[in-house]
């Protein structure tokens, strides 16, 4: 087990991502943040707070559960459905930033795009992740990446956040080969 990101690294990465999002979108006026439960939702809340600090205004953020849209449901026992909460401003015509903790095969993001499509029609959809560990199975890439972590498929990347895990830390478990 090795620590890939410390608490400080995570904090710095989120701040950087916040700035990049604001820069690319020319400010926060049209931005809606949607975190993918569980940890992506907490990351979205943190990014919203950071942006509010920068911009001096409330940033609409919410959660988007993608369980019902997964294409791998039958590979595992039933998963708990997590809350979906779309900010009251909605997503139509907005620049929606999907936020997740780890980008891996890309299937979660595909499901999220399907789920989003049922909710409304954003102007753009962008993707921010804390960790990109590679091994994509779909043509999907992140617009904002906290850290690229080259890993072996046999390893697992574990993101821990104080909101649920009592520590901020990203660790890699298992041997590379």
């Amino acid at each position: 087990m090795s620590v890939a990101l410390s608490a400080e690294d995570i904090s710095r990465a989120l701040t950087r991502i916040s700035h990049e999002i604001l820069e690319r979108n020319h400010g926060s006026a049209e931005i809606t943040l949607l975190g993918i439960p569980t940890r992506g939702a907490h990351l979205a809340a943190r990014i919203a707070t950071i942006m509010t600090g920068i911009e001096g205004r409330e940033i609409p953020y919410g959660t988007l559960d993608i369980t019902l849209y997964r294409d791998d449901l039958r590979l595992r026992p039933p998963r708990t459905i997590m809350p979906t909460s779309i900010p009251s401003i909605g997503i139509a015509g907005r620049d929606v930033i999907l936020i997740d903790d780890v980008l891996y095969s890309g299937r979660t993001i595909r499901a999220a795009l399907d789920a989003l499509g049922e909710v409304g029609r954003p102007r753009t959809v962008q993707l921010a992740v804390l960790v990109d560990r590679g091994h994509r199975e779909l043509p999907i890439r992140a617009d904002y990446v906290g850290k690229n972590l080259p890993t072996s498929p046999r390893q697992s990347v574990k993101v821990q956040l104080t909101e649920i895990d009592s520590i901020d830390e990203v660790v890699i478990e298992g041997e590379a080969n």
Binding site: L68, Y69, T80, I81, M82, P83, T84, V119
Partner: peptide, 23 residues
């Protein structure tokens, strides 16, 4: 309780504009 909680989330989805899920 798991079934009730699942139904709660589904109810929230059903109250919105989503009428059909691919599950």
């Amino acid at each position: 309780i798991g079934i009730l909680n699942t139904a709660t989330e589904l109810a929230r989805i059903n109250e919105g504009q989503v009428k059909k899920l691919p599950t």
